[in-house]
Write a protein that binds this DNA or RNA. Sequence first.
DNA 1: GAATACCTGCGGCATATTGTCCCAATTACT
DNA 2: AGTAATTGGGACAATATGCCGCAGGTATTC
Lengths: 181, 181
Amino acid sequence: MDRKHILLVEDDEVFSRVMSRALLHRGYEISHAANEEDASQLIESSHVNYAILDLNLGGHTSLGLIAPLKRSNPDSRILILTGYASITTAVEAIKLGADNYLAKPADADEILSALLNNEQSSTPVDSEAAHLEPMSVRRLEWEHIQKVLNENDGNISETARQLKMHRRTLQRKLQKRPVAK
Amino acid sequence: MDRKHILLVEDDEVFSRVMSRALLHRGYEISHAANEEDASQLIESSHVNYAILDLNLGGHTSLGLIAPLKRSNPDSRILILTGYASITTAVEAIKLGADNYLAKPADADEILSALLNNEQSSTPVDSEAAHLEPMSVRRLEWEHIQKVLNENDGNISETARQLKMHRRTLQRKLQKRPVAK
DNA sequence: GAATACCTGCGGCATATTGTCCCAATTACT
DNA sequence: AGTAATTGGGACAATATGCCGCAGGTATTC
């Protein structure tokens, strides 16, 4: 068995430090990067088999790191972490090859579990169908905005135009939280 | 090129009828099933190359149909539709092989686009069908409200509760926009 | 290099929409 | 009949939105 080497890409100082410690504690080797470039270098120079990527790195997303990771080690498991979860970005990430997608806040155990768990696909069939509540309008709005924004490669002005809402309004909505439940 | 044969699995009477018509209109051949068994049979008996599956089929999810579909025709494109917010199932669906995952409400164009679009994948060919105006947030909200209100037999209080919005607000919205745009 | 054209982030403001609370008049439901 | 739930609406404060304008950033073009 390989050594357990996790690449943690996260730009939040506090969170990454806490997470690193928690993972080290559990016997993992951790390499940390706060931005895409550093992460790329680490992928080149060291052999990692796990990666925890914060979706939102300052300006852009960390999705671009998935391909290099897979190339460097096809067997690596990749988990995308985000504070602004949406169906669109989740789908996007999985399509690109991420193995899982988790919304913050999440503790070390949850994260590790999501990273390691090989197909907990025993879950779906009935359990999900049980709690069927329609989406709240807020949630729906958030999902829709994310989807359109994604289609427009993050172009806020264009997205606002298509959504027929004022750019300033969209901008303000995006700064706020993604809506808890 | 194959004929365009879509399998539509949807248990909502109204929605499936409307969708079928819209798709037929666009030149697709449609097979409709309202439950898993019927769908399975259709998959066996006919050769479909597209599938639109409503995630929630009264108690069960339609995710179990993905494997048979892929087996029957590895090249088929599969779209999962859902009216309920669930990042977990979205991730699950994509992992299982669905090509896309979309939240209702969505109109025929959006659905078709999600079903066909290879997104950023590889096909730089299809730029013509790509530019479709997304719904405005207002219209999306309106449709969603109508749907939930309808599910609740017009009960405003209950609808407001499910939508997590204030009853007074819902009431005002309903009065104001007899016709939304 | 300079001009042009977008996009972005953000500070005011005036206006519009919501969240709350509260009531009186119906409508269920047991 | 009697209690619980629903409904339409008034009043008012708390937010949210539309709109304008500005400065800095990034391409693209001449």
